[in-house]
Computed example of a mutant assay.
Amino acid sequence: NKTKAKTADYIDSVGAPAQYYAMLGEDNLLIEDLLIDGKENAAISNLVPGIAGGLFSHGLNGLPPSRSCDPLNDNDDDGVSYLTSRLTQEDILATNVADNGDGTITLTIQPKLSEMSVPGKDAQGRFFMTLGDITGVVDSISALSWASGDTASNILCHYMGGTGTIKIDTAAGEIVEADYNMVVKIEVNHANIAVIKDKSASLTIKYDMHYPASDEYMMENKSVKRA
């Protein structure tokens, strides 16, 4: 909370002065292990860029969960601010603390499993910036239809196995560096894709966030620089 409460001066994309979170992060999303009935399929693999594009575009956000670089506009779907951490002790599956011997400690946290996680609303969503309801993205894939049921009943999202590794300056009580590595296992049932009918599919999404963001990342992706 102390780290996320700090702001810093930046120059925004139109050259105007702005105040954003002092600790901003860079992110990347990968889709791996896309399988049909447990096997790779070239036709399905060609859909990966479209799936990834619908789920993700590079952001510039505060510590997760966060949807904005600007703390004044960083809110959930209910309009409640993300400025204060919502993580609870009950959300944590495993944790470890290591003394680095230089005035910092490294805290590793693994949150408990969540299904179809919503940012700020469950164990995974209170620790990571989860994807929320992805049924709309899946519905937009024109090559995909269902042999039975609908998108909501045929898509399962298991958020599990991801961790956060956070380095903290113990004297200041502030985060100096952090990596959040979220993992989502997605199962799809009764899928029709081209000549493939009524099949099961699975894929893994890995969403990585690193703090602080580099100057190069901020400029290349958001045309923002530190003042």
Rank of each mutant, 00 (worst) to 15 (best):
I44Y: 01
A16P: 00
T7P: 05
F127K: 00
L93Q: 14
N181Y: 03
S13K: 13
Q110M: 13
S85H: 08
Y82E: 04
G53V: 09
D150H: 02
I196L: 15
K112F: 09
D215A: 15
E115C: 00
N181K: 10
P64H: 02
L72V: 13
N181V: 09
Y211R: 05
D169S: 10
N73L: 14
T3M: 06
N221Q: 15
T135S: 14
G173T: 06
S81I: 10
A98I: 09
I31M: 15
D78V: 01
L203I: 07
A42E: 14
V176Q: 04
N1E: 13
A43L: 12
Y217W: 10
L93P: 00
E216L: 05
A147S: 15
T204L: 15
E90S: 15
D12S: 10
M116Y: 00
L34V: 15
S223G: 07
I166G: 08
T130W: 03
N61Q: 11
A147K: 07
E220C: 03
D76W: 07
T135A: 03
S45V: 14
Y217T: 08
M23H: 11
L47S: 10
D77G: 05
P212D: 09
A178Q: 06
L203R: 06
G50P: 02
V224E: 05
I168G: 10
L35W: 04
S81N: 14
R226S: 09
N100W: 08
C157M: 12
C69G: 12
L87A: 11
L29Y: 11
S142I: 09
R126G: 04
L55E: 05
I105D: 07
P111Y: 03
A22P: 06
K185S: 13
L87G: 01
E216D: 12
L24G: 09
L34R: 00
L93D: 14
M218N: 06
T108P: 03
K206T: 15
T130L: 04
N61H: 11
M129Q: 12
A42L: 12
S68F: 07
N41V: 13
E32H: 10
G62W: 03
G164F: 02
C157A: 15
